[in-house]
């Protein structure tokens, strides 16, 4: 009985919500994202309150380079689309293609994360813009760093799901797990849309 959920093949429409456990996960995770909205709003609010408090350290116009940020944005937006593709294949019960698209998502996410680390390194060493330089620098690194931490966590999550299920394909037990991991990934993208707008673009406009 209980083991039925581990059988692969013959999935219903919306397999992620076919079991009670799946529906609970789906609902609970959406609510968690509602809470995360407030978490990031608090960080954004703090950043906005302090964004001009650079205390003789570098200001936002001095350091931000839009070229890099644009590439990062495209990478993350694309990874959002690739995870949509992964879910598309999950719903068609095509495990191999789902794994492929998740793999592409992970590669794009890693590239994003690598560029973000490069960016921070560049600020610290090129502009002497460290975490303790000013209230602005603390707020900047905390907000963007929290997002980066979410990206890193999401990558670890997706990779561990891919490895765990590599040999057994899709079933009613793991489809909800894949689904909410992809919701998390989209949410990371949602936050980034506001980061590139509010932090980088407004930082250049002044």
């Amino acid at each position: 009985m209980a083991e039925d959920v581990l059988k692969s093949g013959n999935l219903p429409e919306n397999p992620e919500r076919a079991t009670l456990e799946g529906r609970n996960k789906f609902m609970g995770f959406w609510f968690f994202l509602g809470g995360e909205t407030v978490l990031f709003a608090s960080l954004f609010g703090t950043y906005l309150a302090l964004r001009n408090s650079n205390a003789e350290g570098p200001a936002s116009e001095d350091i931000f380079g839009l070229g890099l940020v644009f590439i990062m944005t495209v990478l993350l937006l694309t990874s959002s689309l690739t995870s949509v593709y992964a879910m598309y294949h999950m719903k068609n019960n095509d495990f191999k293609k789902m794994q492929l698209w998740l793999g592409i998502t992970v590669v794009l996410g890693l590239a994003f994360l690598g560029m973000e680390i490069y960016e921070f390194y560049h600020y610290v060493h090129g502009y002497e813009f460290g975490y303790t330089t000013s209230a602005f620098s603390s707020a900047f690194y905390t907000l963007v760093g929290f997002h980066g931490g979410h990206v890193a966590f999401g990558l670890l999550w997706i990779v561990s799901l891919m490895i765990r299920n590599a040999k057994r394909g899709l079933n009613l037990y793991n489809t909800p797990k894949f689904y909410i991991a992809s919701l998390y990934w989209h949410f990371i993208d949602v936050v980034w849309v506001f980061i590139f707008t509010v932090v980088y673009l407004l930082g250049k406009v002044g």
């Binding site: 994202l33 509602g34 809470g35 909205t37 407030v38 990031f40 709003a41 609010g45 703090t46």
Partner: peptide
């Protein structure tokens, strides 16, 4: 969540 978020950002 967006409602609470907007209030928070507005206040700050």
């Amino acid at each position: 969540g967006i409602f609470a978020a907007v209030l928070t950002i507005l206040a700050l």
